[in-house]
Design a protein around this nucleic acid. Structure first.
Lengths: 204, 204
DNA sequence: CAATGATTTGACCAACTGGTCAAACTCACG
DNA sequence: CGTGAGTTTGACCAGTTGGTCAAATCATTG
């Protein structure tokens, strides 16, 4: 194991390569379905060499998850109480959709975990994410009560945004097969904008 | 292996117990993450005994999937060209939502497969499901062109229904944690009805 | 260039996994 | 109740997997 001094050039390169490879492997086979050898080969290292940089398979996974969660929640944090409600929400939807297009592996890694009961994520969800969701749910409820957007259950509104946007990453295999030659991400932004605009635009 | 005569009482009971146990285990750990021993224990059998009824782990999985897919697509098949468009769609949404509540393991089993690239399902999706989707997409488009519901990309409309309803089964761990003591399925039907009603009710 | 620490690897291990098999046991039925 | 088919199991096997270790190689710097 490298000492806890400043990381050398080689350490930086190899740790990055390992995490990149691990994202690839974990996101397409799940934790249990992935092998250390697979990850090592994908990173261009031997298995013992990989285990020189990370103490265990689980440690790689945890580091990956920790790094992921922050990025994942950023768009929600960016929901601005001062902005125009409908435009804020629509922007959030588009940001999430872009993340599904640009970082589908991250989305699938997360999905894999949650579908299997979130055994390794329950604590983070119950603490950090929960706090953030409560805060943003209150913000949405405030907008609704002020009549600036239509009434709707705020938490379900958030769930629906996550669900609709991440679907394009998580169910990519299905979506692309059914779309044929058409790229799903061509029409998706328009579709989701229309959906949320019609649902949330205040009716007098 | 039991002869291919009529199944005995014991065969019927044990095969059913195995499939039930397999659904439990596969849906919460994925194919690769599940072991034959786990399934056997959950079914109350020894591993060799289980393998007396099914030739392999993969065979159990395949039989489970085959049985699942039909039930899974039934609600979509039931979309009736003769009915009132909006009510047909809303009924479909509610039916799918009920399935997420009543058969969450089936939903998660399916999700697990698709998230990991649908290696064992690609053919069924590309053939059977694709045919059904094309047919129903045309039906939806017809309704839109006749001005009976609002315009929206018909395939994306279907994706959104699957996504929103299955989310409550697939991301159950997350949804329940964030909902606290409130049962997600209390408000979900209302939320989804409102969403699709606002989105699809024809605007003059 | 010497030497010290960082990096890499082949060989290895114990636990686990899917699957086999012969022997034992159980059950239905004549 | 006996007998043959149906059922169950302990022992076993070969392949895989996460992880270890000592020895070898490489990079850095005094």
């Amino acid at each position: 194991m490298p000492a806890d001094r400043a990381p050398t050039r080689i350490q930086k390169k190899n740790r990055a390569a390992i995490l990149e490879a691990a994202l690839d492997v974990f996101s397409s086979h799940g934790f249990r379905g992935s092998t250390v050898d697979q990850i090592a080969k994908a990173a261009g290292l031997s298995k013992p060499n990989l285990l020189y940089y990370f103490p265990s398979k689980e440690a790689i996974f945890n580091e990956l998850m920790a790094g992921l969660l922050d990025t994942w929640l950023d768009p929600l944090r960016a929901l601005n109480p001062e902005g125009d409600p409908l435009e804020e929400i629509l922007a959030y939807v588009q940001r999430k959709l872009q993340m599904s297009r640009d970082f589908p592996r991250e989305s699938r890694l997360y999905a894999n975990e949650i579908v299997q009961g979130a055994p390794r994520l329950h604590d983070v969800i119950a603490s950090d994410l929960n706090v953030l969701v409560e805060e943003k749910a209150r913000l949405l409820q405030g907008w609704m009560d002020a009549g600036r957007i239509n009434q709707a259950h705020p938490k379900h509104l958030l769930f629906s945004i996550w669900s609709l946007t991440q679907h394009y990453a998580d169910f990519d295999a299905q979506v692309r097969t059914l779309m044929g030659t058409e790229d799903p991400f061509d029409a998706a932004p328009q579709y989701l904008e229309t959906l949320y605009r019609r649902m949330l635009t205040p009716q007098n």
